[in-house]
Design a protein around this nucleic acid. Structure first.
Lengths: 231, 231
DNA sequence: GAGATTGCTGTGAGCAATCTGAGAGCGGGT
DNA sequence: ACCCGCTCTCAGATTGCTCACAGCAATCTC
């Protein structure tokens, strides 16, 4: 994460701030703007490594913005943000080259993962690793495959995201609120009990194949993924 | 703790004073205000390193305050204070970035610990250490793990908090009243006998693994955590 | 040493946090 | 339309924590 520059473009201040804060904390250098014209301007000046672009902007749509950028020789990959109900063809038309898209509402962990994936595909230079291996579990993030002691297991999308988040913070207690904020979509508005349920699902799938339980409950605090080495 | 500036924002004078006094005593430089407008003003002038922000304020709520601050370029992490019963619905997004939240009533030691945790996460610059090691005992605060001579032991949340408080004041007698005030939630209204009980629990777990008893009773005064090497 | 004071710790009731199974609702695929 | 897997809720079971209390031990006072 050696000073990767991200340009965030979204007209909703809440979403923009959420993204900016969250990505800054994830180690990116972030510049955030609220409309297409500013985006073009900022991209020209700032030479971002990747652009997060809402397709619905007040002045111009994401497609026009991208076209404009490309015509100016700015080839940074774009991660489009679209509403769930955008038409399928509109979206597929956008995702050419190194580009990708995510539907709103998204989860913060997923955004970060997606950015890493795109950077991995575009600049081989960075030493971004697509395989996350901690303790007895190995995740291949390109293939979305999870191996427990080299045995492939099948996880639902949410189970996968939860495990990935736990594994990217090994030996550190994560509160249920933190897990909810990072793994679930930002508009999720249920109870934290859902985290308990999914931890339960994960344990049922993982524990039979491991030598010791990997997800520990820290009563009154949260959960922790324990990696074997050290302590 | 090299002159870290904390801005405390709470409209209840009791809580505000409690926090201010306690944080000053913990070595922070504190400025305290009672409403959102003053908070914005104070943050602008004072450039705090961290902000303790009650979400329920007379003029504006904590989120508006934060938004306002962020829009002004003030990026200091925020530790939100929320009532226990408004927890479930409104905490979404509070643990994103450097931010975190605590429910009222809280314990003072926990507030201090949380502030240190946040500073640790946000400014890697400062030499905030997540491992607290005094004498034969080592606490890993990220993992909430306690080692006695490198052997992992299991403590309940209250036992953990008590030990952490004792260890952060080594070679210094703490009265039962002080312990009660720092370790238990501020609205606790039981007897000081509870401190005796928990000291007893701790000793039962710690002493079998240490070369000498680490928690000393100063009859008529209080308790002292003794570290071998000076103090 | 006797009585008073202070501290220690086992017991147990009540409670809070967590786990988990069952099932409702939704949506995608056939 | 039907099936199937996934998400999420709910409630009962379970775990184990907190705290009060009471009797005992240690220490102090005279």
């Amino acid at each position: 994460m050696e000073n990767v520059k991200v340009l965030v473009v979204d007209d909703e201040p809440n979403i923009r701030d959420l993204l900016a804060t969250s990505l800054r904390f994830a180690g990116f250098s972030v510049h955030a703007v609220g409309n297409g014209a500013d985006a073009v301007h900022a991209a020209e000046k700032g030479e971002p490594d990747i652009i997060l672009l809402d397709v619905m902007l007040p002045d111009m749509n994401g497609f026009s913005v991208t076209k404009k950028l490309r015509s100016m020789g700015i080839m940074a990959p774009v991660l489009f943000l679209t509403a769930r109900d955008e038409t399928e063809d509109k979206i597929t038309g956008l995702t050419v080259g190194g580009d990708d898209y995510m539907t709103k509402p998204f989860s913060l962990d997923e955004i970060v993962a997606r950015i890493h994936a795109i950077l991995r595909r575009t600049k081989q230079a960075t030493i971004e690793e697509s395989v996350l291996e901690v303790g007895e579990i190995k995740i291949n993030q390109d293939a979305h495959e999870v191996f427990v002691n080299d045995e492939l297991i099948d996880l639902s999308p949410t189970e996968y995201k939860l495990l990935r988040f736990l594994m990217s913070n090994p030996n550190r207690v994560l509160t249920k609120a933190q897990i909810l904020d990072h793994v679930w979509e930002y508009d999720f508005n249920g109870e934290m009990g859902i985290v308990e349920s999914y931890v339960s699902y994960l344990r049922k799938k993982l524990d039979p194949l491991t030598t010791e339980p990997l997800i520990q409950t820290k009563r009154g605090v949260g959960y922790m993924y324990k990696s074997a080495k050290n302590g």
